[in-house]
Amino acid sequence: MSVKVLIFTLVLSVNSFASGYAVIMNTHTTIKNLSAKEIKNIFLMKKYFINDMKLIPVNSAASLEIRARFEQDILHKNRNKLNKYWVKKHFQGIQPPVVQASMNAVKLFVKNVDGAIGYIPIRLLDSDVKVLYEF
C-alpha cells in the first residue's frame, strides 16, 4: 500500500514539476530573485534597470502556451488589453520585448546575452541559467 502511495505521490510531483515555469537570467547576473511586480514592470517596458544593468526582456512566441500563462499570471492582462497597451506604446516610441520562436531559443538568448531575462518551463532548466522566480 505504502509503495502505491509513494508512486502516486511521485507521479503527482513530476506532473506539477513539468507544468511549472521559471523566470531566468544568465549565470553572470548578481540578481538573486525578483518579485512578480518587478517582472511585470520589466516586460511592460516600465522598468529598464536592476543594479545598473540594462535589462532585455525576451518573450516567447505568442502561439506558445507558456506565453498565455505568463500574460495571465504575471502581467494580469489578456491579449486584447495587451494589444491596446502596445499600440499606445508604439505611438510613444516604445517597442515591446523581443520575441524568440521557441522556449529553447529563449533559453539560448538568455544564456548568451547579459541582461536578457526570459521565462521557460522548469523542465528545461540547467546550470546555464539562473532562476529568479517561479510561477
Binding site: 494589444n83 499600440v87 508604439h90 505611438f91 517597442q95 515591446p96 523581443v98
Partner: peptide, 16 residues
Amino acid sequence: LGHGYKVDNALNMGAY
C-alpha cells in the same frame, strides 16, 4: 497593425 514596422532595433517605423 498598430505596432509599427520593425526594421531592426534601431528603426521602427509607423504612420497614421
